[in-house]
Amino acid sequence: MLSYALKRLVQSLIVILLMTIVIFIGIWFIGNPADALISPDATMAEREAAIVALGLDKPLWQQYLDFLSGVFRGDFGNSFVYRAPVTEILAARLPASLELAFVSFVIAVSVSIPLGLYAGLRPQSPFSQGIMGFSLVGVSIPQFWQGMVLIIIFGITLSVLPVGGRGETATFLGITSSLWTWDGLAHLILPAVNMALLKMSLLIRVTRAAVMEVSRLDYVTFARAKGVRKHRIVTHHILRNVLLPIVTVLGIEIGNLIAYAVITETVFSWPGLGRLLISSVQVLDRPMILAYLCFTAMLFIFLNFIVDILYTYIDPRVRDAIQAGGRK
């Protein structure tokens, strides 16, 4: 198990290293960050000065080596735009992203798994048809538009919920979050629902498909023939086997919720990571883009790792396979 973890870690580091090279060359191809940063009215002398100040006068390979040596010292550099350490800026944005991801995750899971289960167990019932129709709508409506509709209905016409921004924060158990205040929660509802709707639709479909597949299998039929109570069949025999694909999807989706909530964050002016990425890309704020993508790469690798560990608990066959692989 340990050697498996180590192998995964080394693979991940290579991936991240390659990614940083791609980003460096990519941005170099796109253009000079100095031009995106300085006013178009600036004189040539000011432009030159800005290029020197940002360290862009050095050859690309040297800029890259500077970046690498900084990373080994734990320093990802300063943002071109804010001239503050990028790690500080990321850390300031992270709580907002995490709480939004958490709430929309809870909404999505608590709604979609029971619904998906029901739709899978009774695919013919009118309610199930309704669920599937809902999920189709959820998948096909653009998130941006859906967010705007939510704002117009709940924020402007009914005026019952705030339309954007993060609410008041409070500190509880050493964590500063807007989850602890009513105002904070009120601000969270619309963006969280906006993000959850799309995930819900996906999760309902995955759950339903898995349930339908598993409930046709021999051991379910056998259990039923044996006279096992229906409730027990669902919880012990079906749900356990359905979990595997669901966990896989969830692992990826949590990462997406945290790192790529760009659309929701833009519509609801939520101060999270996604908006930071977009605004950084617009002005080619290279240190910010690099740190951000390194962070998200680590996040996805970590989540995948957690998913793998969960597999071993859910499905003994996976554990056996990994251990066999580790002994080789």
Binding site: M148, I151, I152, G155, P162, V163, G164, T266, V267, S269
Partner: peptide, 18 residues
């Protein structure tokens, strides 16, 4: 000063009184 770069969201913020 609230930073609301997205046009639609800025209008919505005004319409809703935020």
């Amino acid at each position: 000063l609230h930073a609301i770069p997205e046009n639609g969201s800025r209008i919505a913020a005004l319409l809703s009184g935020r």
